[in-house]
Computed example of a mutant assay.
Amino acid sequence: MKKFFRRYTPNPSELKNHKNLGWLGKHLHNASLWNFNRKSISKAFAVGLFCAFVPVPFQMLLAAPAAVVFSANLPISVALVWITNPLTMPPIFYGCYKLGAWILSVGIEQDFIMSLDYVWQVFDIIWQPFLLGCLIISVMSSALGYFGIQIIYRYKAYKRVNQF
Rank of each mutant, 00 (worst) to 15 (best):
N73I: 04
W82H: 12
V47D: 06
K2D: 15
L33F: 07
Y155P: 00
V69N: 00
P90N: 05
V68T: 07
Y158A: 11
S141R: 01
A79D: 03
Y118K: 08
L74V: 08
I125F: 12
Y94P: 01
A79M: 14
G148C: 01
G145Q: 04
S42H: 08
V139Y: 03
L144S: 10
Y8V: 09
F123S: 10
F123L: 11
E109S: 11
L132N: 06
K156F: 11
P86V: 04
L15K: 11
Q121G: 01
Y8I: 14
E109Q: 13
W23P: 00
N20I: 03
W23A: 10
I41G: 02
V161L: 15
L116S: 12
A66H: 02
L49I: 02
C96D: 10
L33R: 07
K16L: 10
L74S: 06
P55N: 07
Q150P: 00
G22E: 02
S115I: 01
L33Y: 09
A52G: 14
N85R: 11
W102P: 00
L61Y: 15
I151G: 01
Q150T: 05
N35F: 11
D117S: 12
V78E: 03
F4R: 10
W127E: 01
F112S: 03
N162D: 08
P10C: 07
N35Y: 14
Y118N: 02
M89P: 00
F36D: 09
S138R: 04
G95K: 02
A67S: 14
I41K: 04
I125S: 11
R7L: 12
I149E: 05
P65E: 09
G100W: 08
A67H: 07
A101L: 04
L62Q: 07
D117L: 04
S32C: 00
E14R: 13
Y8G: 09
S71A: 13
L131W: 08
R154W: 10
Y158H: 15
L87Q: 12
K98L: 15
P57G: 14
S115V: 00
F50S: 06
P65C: 09
F147N: 05
L135N: 01
K26W: 07
I92D: 08
V81L: 08
F70W: 13
G100C: 07
I113F: 08
A157K: 13
K16V: 07
K2W: 10
N11V: 03
N85L: 05
N17E: 14
F58S: 14
L135G: 14
F58W: 12
W102M: 12
K2G: 13
L104N: 03
Y146D: 06
W34C: 07
P129C: 05
Q59S: 06
P86L: 03
V47K: 10
G145R: 04
C51H: 05
D111N: 15
V68A: 09
A72N: 04
F5I: 14
V161I: 15
G100M: 05
K43N: 13
N20Q: 13
K2H: 11
M114V: 09
F93N: 04
L33Q: 06
L15T: 06
L99K: 08
L21H: 09
F123G: 01
W127P: 00
P91G: 09
A46W: 05
